[in-house]
Design a protein around this nucleic acid. Structure first.
Lengths: 202, 202
DNA sequence: TGTACATCAGTGAACGCGCGTTCACTGATGTAC
DNA sequence: TGTACATCAGTGAACGCGCGTTCACTGATGTAC
């Protein structure tokens, strides 16, 4: 039956994905090479092009997996936390932890660019917007009355600010912040962002 | 006299720097090639290696110039703005504007990594820390009583949060925020960060 | 000022390496009868 | 069950390209006398 062939193919596709993920996790996006990945997966070089369009396609699938894992980590971080402001702190904390645990995979989410005019497939774009939507839900709990557009903007602001702090903190080119400082900075930031008082002007 | 030779050399060193800067500004760090730069500067390929150690060294000098221009832009942004909270808003606004005007040069500040164990020269590391110090001075006006360490952490947090919003906003991989939205998000963020009230817990 | 020599600016062909991608080929597995 | 053929998984040498860096060479400029 042809089901077996499909299964074998799926298995190898998966092994390639895992090998690529492991390579990126260890050495960063720039260190992932077709030859290494196929060697790790235990197959010939050409196999990559039977299972994936090309290396970019493989990277997109790695990023897709990373997004899913990030999503789970964020979800786990807020499970059992009901107070909205605390939820947002928990989200930031989980984001920092995920970035610490999987720095290179996390960086690859933002580093990878498709060449020329090529754009990411729809399903992958959707995965990204859904992550922001997930964050928006926690913000909506804090401020249930704001509009759809405002909510989207708030979610982006909140995510981007947290992301910036984690990014500069973890891959800061020159000065590494002292131990534990990052955690405090995030606490502080989210505390301020969840303080209700509207700024006086603007 | 040997002064003329030195002047000619300095002139060419400078033309190479300008050519490299222009290339990066137009096409991004990844599109800067030794051949293009020397062609633009009107000299032979080998000349790069008489004026600079190698391409990385040239890029560091480009980044150095970008940092200086960024510094001036930030200074210009707060000139005449005396109220501390407004100064911080003006800083954020100037940062966004600079990133918009020189997106690729600004990105290059964060994208460029030296290979292997090589580290940036001291003078360049200092340029970076001085920029954070510059920002810290405006924060110190807002909260004159906090300690040196706290001030450094606040400056990093403030810078990183603003940076994150600008970064996600300008090079966001998937969803470009609607026109003008970025400016409002930054206003909002800085407003919240400069609100004095200490968060209730932590 | 003139001459001989030394120094260094400047050149670009050639080297070397890395690495994504292809393709002709082999052998195993599935299908038809 | 057996045989003949078709299909496709799997391979890795070879191709092709990009590009940083070197180096042997030339010619201009400076120095010594």
């Amino acid at each position: 039956m042809s089901g077996k062939r499909a299964a074998v193919r799926a298995d190898l596709t998966n092994r390639l994905l895992e090998a690529a993920t492991a390579r990126i996790e260890r050495g960063g996006l720039g260190s992932m090479r077709a030859r290494d990945v196929t060697a790790d997966a235990g197959c010939g070089l050409g196999k990559i092009y039977k299972c994936y369009e090309d290396l970019d396609d493989l990277i997109i699938h790695v990023n897709s997996g990373t997004l899913a894992r990030l999503r789970h980590a964020l979800q786990a971080g807020i499970d059992g936390v009901d107070e909205p402001a605390l939820r947002l702190k928990a989200l930031a904390k989980a984001y920092l932890q995920f970035a610490r645990d999987h720095t290179n995979l996390w960086l690859a989410l933002f580093q990878h660019r498709l060449p020329g005019e090529r754009t990411a497939p729809d399903w992958h774009v959707r995965e990204n917007t859904e992550l922001i939507g997930f964050i928006a839900r926690s913000i909506a709990q804090l401020e249930p009355e704001i509009s759809e557009d405002q909510l989207a903007a708030r979610a982006r602001t909140y995510f981007a600010a947290v992301h910036g702090i984690v990014l500069i903190g973890l891959q800061g080119k020159f000065v590494a912040p002292p131990e534990g400082s990052l955690d405090r900075e995030l606490e502080d930031l989210v505390g301020r962002l969840t303080t209700f008082e509207t700024p006086s002007d603007g």
